[in-house]
Write a protein that binds this DNA or RNA. Structure first.
Lengths: 102, 102
DNA sequence: TTGATATATGAAAATATGTTCATATATTTG
DNA sequence: CAAATATATGAACATATTTTCATATATCAA
């Protein structure tokens, strides 16, 4: 006889997976990291620091904005992105201690 | 003149992304959740609770074991999986508070 | 040894994600 | 207005991940 405890519901897990997936990419993690250190940055600034092609970066940024992780505000020619969901910073910290195989 | 602070190195970010990706899947998150509540579970037990096809579940479990998140031990016909890298539980908690778009 | 049960494996198919490239749009400046 | 700059868009392509299915292997019990 098995009595297995199952806590979290499906919907919550799907949401969590969705957010994790959004962040689980080196460039996107770098963006989160950058924006945790710098209140707001223009696409160009991020582009230069990360050495990432403009259009590719744009895709990443818009993706993360769509999912509520970033916000953006326009100022003249520039668009400044900033961290909307600051909790995602914790994900990086959380994993730094992990001792998984890689 | 731009002075952008950039903290984490590329390698660290790639490792973090790698681990996050491994966990960023509803079924795999459910497995982590289950194993945070139950010390160890057989493939079959997990199969039944999650209503997941046996072979698919096996793929997930082996994948997570390979990446150091789970461990397994054989006992007769059964293989019991348990959480090796308990820190990943925190990822779920971390995200539960997040208020992203979905 | 045969049959039943639990788990793993591997290849193929289905699906999703990431990247590139060419070009569009919007804003500023001369 | 034309040119320059910053960013966005979309389609095509490349690549990676997930799922399915058929089957293999291992262990146990009769």
């Amino acid at each position: 006889m098995t009595t297995v405890t199952y806590q979290i519901n499906k919907e919550k897990l799907e949401k969590a997976a969705y957010i994790l997936k959004t962040v689980a990419h080196p460039t996107r993690l770098a963006i989160v990291d950058l924006l945790s250190q710098n209140e707001k940055l223009s696409v160009n600034e991020i582009c230069e620091v990360l050495q990432c092609e403009q259009s590719l970066l744009s895709h990443h940024l818009i993706n993360m904005k769509l999912k509520g992780i970033l916000r953006s505000e326009k100022d003249g020619l520039n668009v400044f992105y900033s961290l909307k969901e600051k909790d995602v910073i914790k994900l990086i910290e959380c994993i730094e201690h992990c001792d998984c195989n890689y």
